[in-house]
Design a protein around this nucleic acid. Structure first.
Lengths: 250, 250
DNA sequence: CGGACCCTTGACGACTTTCAACGTGTGTGG
DNA sequence: CCACACACGTTGAAAGTCGTCAAGGGTCCG
């Protein structure tokens, strides 16, 4: 065990030269904390698209953060159907929901080639004992995950399909803009219609139709997984004001 | 600030005589940890039904655990509508989702008379610095919240209304049985149809109709908020096997 | 006893799902 | 280099479920 940690120390790369550093908002907010933690983060590991970084039922030994690339988490429900629980963008902590029971509750699958940082649970303890404030950071990261999940519930509560999808797209825009720091107008969807449908609890046909409706309305340009936002204000307005409500008011 | 903490120490009651102790699984798992923490938990406070223990937008200074009584958390969305995000049973940690941004994202409202434990964030720090393992407990509590929320997303993914409601009821049964330690057959709903509908993303009429359907099927006895489970196995079977699927197979 | 609130029930309409067929893009093999 | 297969995405038509509107019944409290 100690040898393993030692080995990881040998192989480590400092987080200070990690592209994640300015991005890693939810996972580790304070760059100073990052330095502390860097002693115990395993080296980043490249992951192929479609590969699994952890699987439902496995024992939890580490948490994960993507440095580059988007992942999805999905559970296999009783009926054998898969349910996409979330998408995880660079800098977002993964696996926390598993520590309570000690086993992963879902598969984490790379949607595109990824660079993954693995953080052994033992490293968290070490980091926390060295720097008590680190616990606060960790707690904030946990709170952030929880807040994300709650936001998703809020999305699902949007009754109409167009509201749900629009809210999701706005979220994507904002996440991308937080990273790049500038206003974005194009969106690349890392996930297919199938994953999107499962995530938003809509049939893939409904996803497709809703994209078409947004296209016909002149709000989006849709080319498979590449989107361009033509009318940002109307996209925002779609959230909370569904088509049916609009037509009812007219 | 220090005075305030000091005062809380004077008023404190030991968690060791807390009815929550054997119950407090998600919040603080190890009774020994409870002792540690007890030095810094504010005295329990009785809360009237309908009262608010924290409100959306307020600055977070403490986390909360109910000792007795169920609460709901709800957000006011842009449209002025409220969305129930969760129900919180005794022993479940509340407020964690707020620590990331520093402000509560929802109102926490008592559905019945409650006894609430308030845990100042500063107390968490103190407890963690005294006992490093406490961080693990806290992390598990956070993971537990996250897992609960994910389970709820899984519920919302159940397409049919009867599946969602049945899954919710099964969850209630299991929670009650975890606390009492014996098999329960009656359920008391702390929440009205309105909150239930918002939580499950269904109209209250649909909730009502679904209850009636379960009653007509001989699965439940429904008397307002008091339920009795007549046919547990068929209630379980309703989860994952909706009426329409059953009739389709027939 | 009246009123307010909560819950139930019915009818209708709208939205989404389902089933089915049809493009389109990509990759493999000839 | 082309042909084919396969996965992915789109579109159409029909059916079903749930939401909305409306009315009625039950319970608690003043």
């Amino acid at each position: 065990m100690a040898t393993r940690l030692f080995q990881s120390l040998l192989e480590q790369r400092a987080c200070s030269d990690c592209v994640l550093k300015p991005v890693c908002k939810p996972a580790i907010i304070d760059p100073e904390q990052l330095e502390r933690l860097s002693d115990h983060v395993l080296p980043r590991r490249p992951i192929a698209a479609g590969a699994c970084i952890y699987a439902q039922g496995q024992t939890v030994r580490s948490l994960f953060v993507s440095q580059a690339g988007v992942l999805k988490t999905e559970t296999l429900s009783a009926g054998g159907q898969t349910q996409v629980l979330g998408f995880h963008f660079p800098g977002e902590l993964m696996g926390l929901e598993a520590v309570a029971r000690g086993r992963f509750r879902a598969n984490a699958v790379a949607l595109e080639p990824c660079l993954i940082c693995e953080i052994p649970l033992s490293a968290l303890d070490v980091a926390a004992s060295r720097r008590p404030e680190f616990q606060q950071q960790l707690l904030k990261a946990a709170g952030s995950c929880l807040a994300d999940q709650q936001e998703h519930v809020g999305r699902l509560a949007m009754r109409q399909a167009d509201e749900r999808l629009a809210l999701f797209l706005v979220g994507l825009l904002q996440r991308a803009e937080r990273i790049s720091g500038r206003e974005e107008e194009s969106i690349h969807l890392a996930m297919g219609r199938s994953d999107l449908g499962s995530y938003l609890c809509l049939a893939i046909e409904t996803i497709s139709r809703t994209f078409s409706a947004l296209r016909d309305a002149g709000i989006l340009v849709v080319q498979r997984r590449h989107l361009r936002v033509l009318d940002r204000s109307r996209l925002m307005k779609t959230v909370g004001v569904s088509q049916s409500e609009e037509s009812r008011r007219a």
